[in-house]
Every structure is written in structure tokens, then in C-alpha cells.
Simulated scan of single mutants.
Amino acid sequence: MTFTPVIRETDKPSLASYQQGLKVLRATTTDAVGPPDNHDFALLITAPGDTTVRGGLWGQSRWGAFYVDMLVVPEDLQHMGMGTSLMQRAETEARGRGCHLMWLDTYAFQARPFYERLGFEVFGQLDGSEPIYPRWFMRKVLA
């Protein structure tokens, strides 16, 4: 690279800038260990006949592990088994992809007991100010 780099700061990065950065990262990864084994997954909650997403589960499998990036159940659908159903469907997908574990992170004000009921265990923790922290990193080994 023969240029003088310019670093621009922004608190509103565009999706295009993220995708460009990801392209560079994936090229570096490919050089180091071969093509990235990234496969996205989503379960989207919509109203019948509507395409507006009201919640769901977003994840990604990579190198034999399945990461649950985000689980969102609309308030009016909570405590009805929706979150459990989404997580079970994601686990079925993870197993179908040959993943050996699932992992996620959750904050103190979120859903650690919910994930523990589904068989997840804490493997890491970041501490900070209450009521946000601690932040737990959790996994479930898929036998």
C-alpha cells in the first residue's frame, strides 16, 4: 500500500462502509486460514400478510460454532414460548450445519436465566456499572 492513510471519525457509519471493511477482513482471513465459513441465519417475526419485521432471531454459523447475535420477542408475544421456540429452531439449524456449539452474550438486565433454562452456561464475564453489567458470554455444547 503506497498512500498516506486518512482516518475519518463518524458516529453514523454506513452499511456500505461496514461491508467494505468486512471485505478487507475476509480477504485477510482467507490469506491466513482459507475462505471464511460464515453462513447467516434468521427467523423473522411478522404479522400475517405483512413484511415488517417485529422481532426474531439473527445468527451466524462459522467454523463449527453457531452465534446467536440477537433475539427479539415483541412485548405482546413474550411469555408465550416464542423465545424458546426461536432458540429451539436455531439449535436445530445449528445441528443441521454440523455445529458443535452455540454461543451468545447477554447483559444483567436481559435474559441469563432464560438461556440457562435452555442449557446455556456462562463461559466469560465482563463487569461494569449496574444495572447494565455484568455482561455474560454463554455457550451450549451440542453433543
Rank of each mutant, 00 (worst) to 15 (best):
Y67C: 12
M102R: 03
G96L: 10
S85M: 14
K140G: 02
G49H: 02
Q78H: 00
N38S: 09
V72T: 11
T28R: 14
M87A: 07
A90S: 10
A32R: 10
L43P: 00
R54I: 00
V73A: 03
A65F: 04
R95V: 15
T51V: 04
G49K: 04
T52F: 00
F114S: 06
C99H: 05
V53C: 03
Q110F: 03
E9P: 02
T30R: 14
G81P: 04
A27M: 10
K12M: 10
T10Y: 07
R139A: 05
P113A: 04
T29K: 09
D69R: 13
R112T: 07
Q20F: 09
G81R: 04
K12W: 03
C99A: 10
G34D: 07
E91T: 11
E75N: 08
Y18P: 01
V6E: 07
K12D: 09
D37Q: 14
I45S: 01
M80S: 04
T46Q: 03
D40M: 10
V53G: 00
P48N: 05
S61K: 15
M87T: 10
I45N: 00
S17D: 11
L101C: 09
Y67Q: 13
A27L: 11
L43Y: 01
G55K: 06
Y18W: 12
A108S: 14
A47I: 02
L25M: 13
V122P: 00
L142P: 05
H100M: 12
L118H: 08
